[in-house]
Simulated assay, not measured.
Amino acid sequence: MTAERIEVVVVDDHPVFRIGMSALLDEMEQVHVVGQAASQAEAVEVVLEHRPQVVVMDLDLGGGSGAEATREILRHAPDTGILVVTMFGDDDALFGAIKAGARGYLVKGAGPDEVERAVRAVAEGSVMLGPQVAGRAVAFLTGARSARGGEFAELTERERDVLELLARGHDNTTIARMLVLTPKTVRNYVYAIFTKLDVNDRSALVVKAREAGIGVSRPEG
């Protein structure tokens, strides 16, 4: 068990879940909820006021995005551990949360013991992924490693992010939203990728990426 007090902020736009999660956390030994928030802007404000070790973060906030809130919080308080607890267990939500800097990811419905393990792990600086998403996280990391070698070595980290999402079939507007960029910036990245990988169109780029294992979902289990 973690000996030191763990202070937590809970961010969720559904009051019933937010209050219930806060009550659950307050029942855990040496875990104390010091604030709650219901929107992206409120989350940043409350976290910067209280400076908790852990933020339990929903992704779909009525007043903004949990992933964007995560990015902004970590810009100001990089040691904060973000534990995403969300309804979304799909690849895109997982990828966006990890890229934003989340250390933990659970799907709502996780049991109290699993939530407690995740909170304590994130507070200690570890990464904790729920069983529903762990296999897909490994697939993401495997694809990222593929993009760092061979002819993909010239790509910058952000270009690799764009390539991963492009290979998964997303359009520029969606990629821009997920990576918190403008569509024009994404177009510039795509053009740079075309040039570096010597391809002439999007279809050829997708084929090349998928042949290297980038953007290819791997079966779990």
Rank of each mutant, 00 (worst) to 15 (best):
A3I: 04
I6A: 05
I6G: 01
H14N: 15
P15K: 11
A23W: 03
L25F: 13
D26T: 06
Q30R: 15
V31F: 01
V31N: 05
G35Q: 05
E42M: 09
V44Q: 05
V44P: 10
H50Y: 03
V54F: 01
M57H: 08
M57R: 06
D58V: 08
L61G: 12
G66R: 05
A67L: 07
E68N: 15
R71H: 01
R71Q: 13
I73D: 08
G81A: 02
G81L: 06
V84E: 02
D90V: 10
D91K: 05
L94I: 12
G96K: 11
K99F: 03
A100I: 04
G101L: 03
R103C: 10
G104H: 00
L106N: 03
V107R: 05
G111R: 15
E124S: 15
P131F: 00
Q132M: 12
V133G: 09
A137W: 11
V138C: 05
F140C: 01
F140L: 15
L141D: 08
G143Q: 04
G143A: 15
R145N: 00
R148V: 01
R148E: 10
G149F: 09
A153G: 04
E157S: 07
E159G: 00
A167Q: 06
T174L: 07
T174R: 13
I175Y: 00
A176R: 07
R177L: 15
R177D: 14
P183M: 12
V186P: 02
R187C: 04
I193G: 09
D201S: 01
S203Y: 02
V206N: 00
G213S: 10
